[in-house]
Design a binder for these strands. Structure first.
Lengths: 239, 239
DNA sequence: TAATTTGGGGTACTGAGTGCCATTGCGAGG
DNA sequence: CCTCGCAATGGCACTCAGTACCCCAAATTA
């Protein structure tokens, strides 16, 4: 009942049993019959709690898939606030990104399950974008403050933040796609150094990578210029 | 019944009056009493159509705020597909971003209204992220094909695509915040050149064989809305 | 004129999310 | 021991987004 309190850095009040029970029950049902095929009533029945209690712990059905992103975001923000004003801001946001990575790497099985869900549920993908967007804004805000003296500081901050997030997510997704095998930390480190060295100092990037061949199925309306709709798809597919 | 096909680049069946009436009615009510305070019934009552017809043209309440993003995405993808394989890929995706900018600049008043809505409605902000994500994936897919020969091609593609989108959005938002004053095209051009100059010129051409190893199947019923096509495709692709 | 196709309307249903209130568990003070 | 908060939870009832199903009208075709 009381040994559940571990990650005290989450800066959130611990709801020892109920919250975890809901997450566990939700994931079991989501993996078993799919996200959209699972109702809130199914989850609360599986967890043995009342329906109203679900929304007391999670604002929406999607949020149960990202149960600790609030804590992680708070952790990242605190880290950036404590960052040395004399240090390299690009390196600092890269370290902040590594902090997020650690949250994923702590529980690979959970992260892979979540990846499989978000990959094929549009609702969850959209929700994940919102989550990632908050991280990116936090990084951009830090860079913006550090680049306040530059004329193009705000633009530079937004671009670097986006690049850091993209490099982080690219490597993370590759790792998740592999099922959580190998050393993510090292891979993300290489990817981040590729970004960091673009704006910080010397050069020497290059990370091993293999492109994946995919089968494309295009659905379009009869009588429409086919070549147009056909292109409109491969944009949407490449995850 | 046959002179209706005008803007063939939209690759969508023309719904002359009804669709536009719904968009106009929706925006009037959204600006007047807010997005969440407006129900679908309010919109269809204002437009003088049946409730069921709303969902025949828009998959969700949020989509009415981005009525032409499907056509714009198709246009951008077509542009990238027609791009010269010998040209600089970074410049090409920058031009593609300029294409999207043009869609915003065509109707500044509408774009500013939409910006004011998405700025303060979390639901709309999340939906906009999904829209932007599709553009970014289209750019990344093009870069990925062009960088197929590189070892770190996929990472580089994702990072550059994210940077281009960030630069585009940064400038666009600044312009929208100003109420649509000034020359966006020039401002975005500067921002994009900032990105292009950091990554351009270091490309390794070496033709990636082709993308013809993809299987393409086109099936649909006549009159299917564009969003339904796109969604059906994404479902079939597990994107 | 009857059958079919196409676009739109109407009704009823599912399910997410919310507000309100009753209940239960628990510590403090009488 | 009782009871007064007090916080957490459960139990409804409600709104509204989104969907399935059926109907209707106009246009087309046999």
């Amino acid at each position: 009942m009381s040994e559940v309190r571990k990650q005290d850095q989450a800066a959130a009040v611990e709801k020892p049993t109920m919250r975890d029970a809901l997450v566990t029950a939700a994931f079991r049902l989501f993996m078993e019959r799919g996200f959209e095929q699972t109702t809130i009533d199914d989850i609360v029945a599986e967890a043995g709690v009342g329906r109203r209690s679900f929304f007391r712990h999670f604002p929406s059905k999607e949020d149960v898939v990202f149960p600790d992103h609030d804590g992680c975001l708070a952790e990242m923000t605190a880290f950036l606030q404590d960052a040395d004003d004399a240090g390299d801001p690009v390196e600092q946001v890269c370290d902040a990104a590594r902090l997020v990575l650690r949250a994923y790497a702590v529980n690979p099985a959970f992260s892979v399950q979540r990846y499989l869900l978000t990959k094929k549920v549009p609702n969850l993908r959209a929700h994940e974008l919102s989550v990632v967007w908050r991280y990116e804004r936090a990084l951009a805000a830090h860079l913006r403050a550090r680049y306040a003296a530059r004329a193009d500081g705000a633009l530079r901050a937004d671009v670097i933040a986006a690049a850091v997030v993209a490099a982080h997510n690219h490597t993370l997704r590759t790792w998740l796609r592999s099922g959580g095998e190998g050393d993510v930390t090292a891979a993300v480190g290489q990817a981040l150094s590729f970004v960091a060295e673009t704006w910080s100092g010397s050069q020497a990037p290059s990370a091993p990578e293999s492109q994946d061949d995919e089968v494309v199925v295009v659905v379009a309306r009869r009588g429409t210029p086919m070549w147009r709709v056909v292109r409109g798809v491969e944009a949407a597919l490449d995850v």
